[in-house]
Design a protein around this nucleic acid. Sequence first.
DNA 1: GCAAAGATCGGCT
DNA 2: GCCGATCTTTGCA
Length: 196
Amino acid sequence: MGRRFFQRYTPEVARGLLGVKLVRVLGKARLSGIIVETEAYRGWRDPASHAYRGITERSRVMFGRPGHAYVYFIYGFHNCLNLTTEPEGVPGAVLIRALEPSEGVETMMKNRKAIATADISSGPGKLTQALSIDRALNGEDVVTSERLFLERGRKVERAGVSSRVGVKRGKRFKWRFFDAESSHVSMEMRQRLQNP
DNA sequence: GCAAAGATCGGCT
DNA sequence: GCCGATCTTTGCA
């Protein structure tokens, strides 16, 4: 995926990432999964976004060039992976919320101590654990990186849209996108199917 | 300095 | 459905 893909209106990128394969290379091992759920965080008017109050040490990456990883640590336990969007200077990022595992499933299971494959990466904190993604990858350029990047995946026929989950403010933005035909999304919110 | 909240998960009731 | 774990970031004194 080129830089231009990310340099657009964030909800558009979030929708466009559905069906794309996220690849993590660890030594000679390849771990990957198809993105089936995303959320957009954008601009200065979105109260749920880390960029809401302007540039801080943490949110700096969101204001930088598009196509970079923004990884933050939350609740004392979990890392969350985002990909930055919009032209430089405009804050935006897409939170990757769920993957459908494809390569390296055994390793991901081990990383997760999971017994069911549906449980490997069906949540933002789960997938970073499965793919060994932490803040060491914050700021990684996924357009040129060889340890974290995107590849062509499959076409998503039916995309669902809803409010974002887990946020208190900014509910009015319908910026959560998911593959309505996937059984690997983070929650069973497969009602309210629409076309974005 | 310090206190409080947080883009979560898993276990228990 | 509710609760606890655990620690970073941020806002305010």
